[in-house]
Structures are given as structure tokens and as C-alpha cells.
Design a protein around this nucleic acid. Sequence first.
DNA 1: CATGAATGAGAATTCATTCAT
DNA 2: AATGAATGAATTCTCATTCAT
Lengths: 214, 214, 214, 214
Amino acid sequence: VTAPKVSDPATSKAARTRQRIVEAAAHELARYGYGGTSLRQVAAAAQLQLGSLYFHFASKDDLVAETLREGVEFALTRVTDALAGLPSDASQAARLRTAITAHLAALHASHDRAASVVRMAGTLPPDLRQEQAAHERRYGQVWLNVLSEAQRDGAIDQELDVRVLRDILLGAMNSTLNTTPPADPDRNDRVVDTLLYLLLDGRTEGHGRVPADG
Amino acid sequence: VTAPKVSDPATSKAARTRQRIVEAAAHELARYGYGGTSLRQVAAAAQLQLGSLYFHFASKDDLVAETLREGVEFALTRVTDALAGLPSDASQAARLRTAITAHLAALHASHDRAASVVRMAGTLPPDLRQEQAAHERRYGQVWLNVLSEAQRDGAIDQELDVRVLRDILLGAMNSTLNTTPPADPDRNDRVVDTLLYLLLDGRTEGHGRVPADG
Amino acid sequence: VTAPKVSDPATSKAARTRQRIVEAAAHELARYGYGGTSLRQVAAAAQLQLGSLYFHFASKDDLVAETLREGVEFALTRVTDALAGLPSDASQAARLRTAITAHLAALHASHDRAASVVRMAGTLPPDLRQEQAAHERRYGQVWLNVLSEAQRDGAIDQELDVRVLRDILLGAMNSTLNTTPPADPDRNDRVVDTLLYLLLDGRTEGHGRVPADG
Amino acid sequence: VTAPKVSDPATSKAARTRQRIVEAAAHELARYGYGGTSLRQVAAAAQLQLGSLYFHFASKDDLVAETLREGVEFALTRVTDALAGLPSDASQAARLRTAITAHLAALHASHDRAASVVRMAGTLPPDLRQEQAAHERRYGQVWLNVLSEAQRDGAIDQELDVRVLRDILLGAMNSTLNTTPPADPDRNDRVVDTLLYLLLDGRTEGHGRVPADG
DNA sequence: CATGAATGAGAATTCATTCAT
DNA sequence: AATGAATGAATTCTCATTCAT
């Protein structure tokens, strides 16, 4: 018996290979940056010959752009899905904790999807930097909404510039990629606690921690 | 035979050229990362021929290592000097504000010395990453001292993990390299205010702001 | 099971596709030479996927060889047919004019069949160069006959080396591919007139021009 | 004793290497066309490593452009020098013979300088084709002058379009690259005789042949 | 008949590095 | 101190070719 002929495009052979390539690219880009990542390494990590990459992506920049796109998409989906999963009467503290936790989880996911975005961001050539900036505006808007809502409801002090706060918060979270040792997964929990404590002025007991199950 | 020139080794021609090279390297490394920076670009920016670099540095990694070292040294000096310049009875809030301001100023200085450290950090090859980690430990220790002292004196909440706080703070500050538009120098002031507000729970009026002169 | 289609092998689907490929190859080869023509371009011009070429031709050189063959065949047919269409009592001047006109027409035909032969000739690899030489000998023989006959009948001066004359004439005609601007179709007529004038020493009024119809 | 330090730029090491590269390029380009010539072959023929070419030429197109330029320059110099070497009272027939002989000699010179121009012309990419066209206009102008003068003096029939004649003549001469076997150097002499016979209507005894010596 | 997916060799170009001068 | 000239390995990308489907 042979494999079924009719396959939906998302699971076609090409789509699966393409996905393997993007994952490999995310891995390399997160570690070595744009200039330090060679397509030969990417191809090897995707178990392909170098030339075969070009069947799936027209150029290095095309591949990097797609990796960026998927990385942002991944984090965006994780955060918005997590927020959507909250009960409608969840406190602002709970919403903040949820978003922060989701962002950190996306960043530290083993496949480097989101991490590559943060790590390579500084090393992109001009063309890609523009694309990257567009993605970040979109992602930043989501966080601006979260923080603005929290401020409106009084969870975050009225005096704070919410835009500056957003940038500081993202910067702080993203820096955990460099400071969290791989061997210490609990560290991210402490980061979450600390960030919430700072944001909420230590006012809330438990800082919006949500019961683990139900 | 020409008369031997007795000159301060720090201002000899070689030393000056060497300095020009490091500055050029910092500039390129901050923009393109380790892998994206070519020695030809560096040489051109230092107004030298490519081959001449090797009179001053044995290899690319040697040059990058020196650039890292000077970058950290620069920021370290700025922060410790700023703190040392405070009156001995300065408040912890004032000390925090001073350190944060000095760090941001070093980071955004026009010659990229410190910026290059942050920007290229993610793209270093293993050998250099170890060196870089050692520098960062040293720099991190200074900040740990500042924060611990502030916590001991009650300026920072006792509940907070001061190590985590240090990493978050540095991450937040360093991220301003990506978020502060070159055209908006005031932005950094707002960042300082926001960070202090968070750290001090908004408790202190003026957050330790020091009179501009005297 | 579908009913077997009985069809003229010359007009079968495969034959038509094959023809499209050769035409596309002639077009590309005439413009970019052997080394500069990629099979991907050829496939695209023939509205096929790259891999599909190999159903019709075993290799690039096979395709090029066939293109050469058809190109020479095309010009040969045009010239001999044109000569065969002349009345049996046509003058040698008329015969020369007819042959030259037919050669130029074949060369400047829009489908590049014959042009590709001339244009790519210089860029062929050794194997194909030999094949090409064989074709040219055959084509050159036809022209040698035409010129020899004209010389025998006194239209061309006895002193001339007819072999050298043939090569010169073909070289002059073929060079019109480079010198005739696409926007000036009349130019070829002037070339015909000039060549005849030279060949016939300007002796014949009208140089054998044949009335347009009958 | 070491080599003298002061050397005029035309004979510097770089200039000599550069010249070797251009000669190697002319050789390869004449045989394989633009697309068929690889820089590795060129480098090998110039006794250099591939990468070393880039010290002397910024790109393949730069090298090809220089090769074209030198090729045209070479032929131009040969023809104009030969004409300038004639006595001022030389006949138009002698002038024509001299120019034709010089052109053919340049074309068949062993170093392929001029031959490469003719051979690769058809295979150039658009950018270089424009440069090439400019060179050809310059070279064509010289020939137009020669032929116009001959026509003014009555050596060439008044009825002929001298522009068309020029193109035909150059085409005929250039085609000898393909038709003259390397083993038959006398063939070019017969080509000269034939061309002159055609141009001068066979009117002139000896066709302007110049006594071999004095 | 034709396509989709891959290969491996080779293209042009850039890189860090060397070394005689 | 600095340059000019070269090297060899690595880069991105294209090529002709293969073959299962």
C-alpha cells in the first residue's frame, strides 16, 4: 500500500520540507545572527543539500524574511490565544501575568521560532530590517493594548507612559534569552513574578496568579 | 638617523591608529554583528588598507575582543565615576537614577563603544562569547551592588530577587538601543523616569532626581 | 482504458511540444550563446517545467544539436526551394539575387531558427562544434554550386577564388544579424543590392532583380 | 642585487599581472563566449588563484569590459598606424589594401585580443552590449572614413551605399575567424585579394598591392 | 507526458589572513 | 607602520541532471 495521493497543501512533502528549513534557519539565526548564519549550515540542519534550499526559497533573504514572519506569528498567536483563553472576568493582574508568561514561553520554546526574531534583529540588512520593524509594530500594538487596558482599570499607575513601559517590558523579557541559563527553567517564573511586582507596585497579593488547573 | 622620539606610549602614532581601528570596529559591529562585519569595512572606516590592520591586531577575534573589552570598560567607568561623583549622603533613589542615566548615556554615546557590546553580543562565536560573559559578570556585579545596597536601605522592596531585578533592568535599558529613535533624545529621560518609578514603587516624589547643578 | 489515439506522429502532442522546445531554444541560444542559455529559461519559454524537457531531449547538448540541425535545415530549404521556384531560363544574376534574398530572409525570420546557428556558433563546446562544422560544409556546398555555376556562365569574374568568395559572402550576409536594426527591414534589401553590385562588378542593370509576381 | 624599487606604473607588478589576466580572458572569451567563460579558467590561464583576480578587477563584467576595450583599441591602433605609415601619395587602392590587411592581421594575431571582441560580441549581457556598441561605432567610423574617401576619389563606385558597404566588409573580414583554418595562413592573403577585387570592380592591376620592401 | 523535489558540481564573489617590500 | 599583492576557504546562488509519482 502506498501513501495516499491526495494531500492537503499544508502537509505536502514540500510544505514539510519547507517547515524543516525554517526551523533550522531559526535555530542558526538565533545563534549566529544574519551574517553569521550560512545556508550550508541551515541545509545540513534541515537534512538537505545546499542547492535544494533554492527549490523552496528564492534567496537567503527570502528565507530569513519567512523565519522572521513565522517567529512573530508564533509569539503573537501564543499571547493572544492565552489571553483569549482567560475567563471574561479575569483581573488585569491575571491578564498581565498571562501575557507575560506566554511571551516568555514562546521566546524560550525549544524550536527557536520566536527567539530567532529577537536574537537576529540587530544584525539584519536594511531591507529585512524594514520588514522586521513592521512585524514589531504589529506585535507592539498588541502589548500596547494590554497595558493600556490595565492602566485604564487602575492596575497600572496613571502616571506611567504606557508606550515607554511597553518597550521596557519587552526589552526586559527579551533579555531573558541571554540571562536565563538553559538549566534553570524556574528562572522564568521568577522573572514573571518580578515583572508583575514592578508593574503592579506590589499592591496585589499573588499578583494575578491563576490557579494551575481550573 | 633621526632622533628617537620619546613619546607617551598612549599617544604614540600606533596607539592612535589602534584607537581609530577599535572605534571603527565598534561602529561596524554594532550595526552588522560579528558575522556581518568585514575587516575591509573596518579598515576603510579607519582610513587604512586592509593589510595594515594586522600590524595592530593579530586577528579579527583579537580586534573584536578588544572592542568588547573597551566597550564594557567604557560603560563601567561611566557608571562608577558617576556614582563616585555623588555626595556621600545621596539617597538611594539618587544613586539609582545616577547609575541608570550613566548607563544609558554610555549606550547611546555617538561612538558606539558600549552599544557594540550589546548589539553584537548575540552573534559572537563561542570563544568570544566566553570572554563576553566574563565582562558581563564583572559589570553585572557592579549593578548587583547598587541594587543590593538600595534594597538594604529599603528603597527597593525586600521581596524582590535582586539578581533577577538586575537582569531585567539591564535588559530593559539595553533594549533602548532598538527602541529609541535617533531623533528623540528626550526619550531616554522618560525611560529613566519610568524605570525609577517601577523600581521605587512610585513612592518617592521626584524619584531621586538631582538638581542640575550643585 | 482510453481508446488509443491514432495520430500522425508529426503532429502528435509530443511532436508539437518538442517543436515548441526547439523554437524556445533557438530563441535563447541566439541571444545568449551556448554557455549563457539555461534550460530553465528554455523550459519557461516553452511553457514547461524544467524537468519536462528531459522527456523530449536527453541532454542540453542533444537539444542544442537538434536546434542547430533544424536551423541549417531551415535555411537550406528556403534557399533551395527559392532557387527551384525560378524559371529554368533565369539569369545567373537572378539566381544569385534569389539565393541571397532567401538566406537573409531565413536569417531574419522571427523565430530565430537560422539566426541561432550563426549566433551561437562561436560559443559551442568541441563536440557540438564538430557537428556544426558538418552542417556548414553541407550548406556551404550549396552555395559553392550556386557561385561556381555563375562563374562558369561568366556572371562572376573568372579570376576570383570561388571558395573564398563563398566564405566572404556568407560572412557578410550573416553579419547583418548584428548590423541590421530591427526597425529597418529595408536595410536587408540594400544589402542584397550592394552584394550583387559587388559580385557582378556593377555590370548588370537591375542586377537580376525579378519582377514581383510572374 | 634586488630589482629596482622605482618602476613606472605601466610596468609595475600589478600592471603586468593585469595584462596577463586580460590576455587570458581574451583567449577564453574568444573560444567560449561570455556565458561559457569561467573566471576559474581565466585565473588558471593567468597563473593565478581565482580569488586573486578580484584584486585587479572588481567583477567579471569589469574584466570583460576591459578586454573588449583593449581588443578594439588593438585593432584600431593597428589599422590607423598602418594607414599613417603609408606615403602621403598612396593610392586609394593601396590604402584599402593596407587597412584590410591590418584588420585581418589584428583579428588573427595569436593573442586573441581583437578576436575576442568579434567572437563574444553576440553573447554579451545587456550592460556590456551597450559598451561594445559604443566601441564598434568608433571603429566603424574609421572604416567609414576610409571607404568614403575611396569613393570620393572614384576608387569605389558612386552608386554604392558606403555604410552598407562598411558593414558588409567588416562582416566578411570578421567571418574569417571561423573560416580560416589555423594551418593556412596564406588564406588571409587570398581574402584580401578577393575583397579588393570586389571593391574595386577588378579595375586596378595589382589592386594597390604595395611593394614588399621600400 | 508532465511535474515536483532533490542533487552535486560549479558559477561569481567575499572573506580573513599572509608576507615581501 | 603601512601597503600591495596574493592566497584558499567560504559565501550565495545557478546549473544540468535525475527520478519517483
